[in-house]
């Protein structure tokens, strides 16, 4: 059984029903893919399978055979970060960073898929991801900005315009 991860082939030694998360982390040392809940609830293990965001903890590795798996390492590097990675840095869209790789992966699928910069639409796209630090607003800003621009100033973070307000059903 052989899978393709970030453009490179890998011969899987785990059983076919092992999770893609376990194979990535423990066989391949692809550690950006996080074990946050291992039950499909938090989004921290999200990868792209043929361009679509998927939870690797719920994906038996055998189902990824023949597909292209992309993790955040495959989207950009510290020497050459993608526009979305730049936008996250510029907009301060992280604190502890544990959920960040999964969010960058999901945002990449959203932007590449022609998503709009409408904040409700962005919120829908990242709704499967739990972030306990940021309160999400800066993440929404970062993704929306990446829809419109492909380059960001990494020498300073964006000025907080306090323009984003998440709509809620009642009192916050």
């Amino acid at each position: 059984m052989r899978i393709e991860v970030n453009g490179a082939g890998h011969n899987v030694t785990s059983p076919p029903l092992a999770s893609l998360l376990t194979v990535l982390r423990e066989e391949m040392d692809v550690t950006s893919v996080k074990a946050g809940c291992e039950s499909g609830g938090c989004g921290a293990c999200t990868v792209l399978i043929d361009g679509q965001p998927r939870r690797s903890c719920l994906t038996p590795v055998v189902t990824a055979v023949g597909s292209e798996v992309t993790t955040v390492e495959g989207l950009g590097t510290p020497d050459s970060p993608s526009a979305i990675q730049q936008s996250f840095i510029h907009h301060y869209a992280m604190q502890c960073g544990f959920c960040t790789p999964g969010l960058v992966v999901a945002a990449t699928a959203y932007v590449n898929g022609g998503g709009s910069d409408d904040l409700d639409s962005v919120a829908e796209a990242i709704s499967g991801h739990v972030c306990r630090c940021t309160g999400y607003n800066k993440i929404l800003e970062a993704v929306a900005a990446a829809v419109k621009s492909s380059e960001f100033d990494l020498s300073s973070t964006a000025v907080d315009k306090n323009t984003v307000v998440i709509k809620t059903g009642g009192a916050v």
Binding site: P78, I89, T157
Partner: peptide
């Protein structure tokens, strides 16, 4: 900018 931001967004 955060000193650790690049590591967070690139998974390093």
């Amino acid at each position: 900018p955060r000193y650790d931001a690049m590591g967070h967004v690139t998974g390093t």
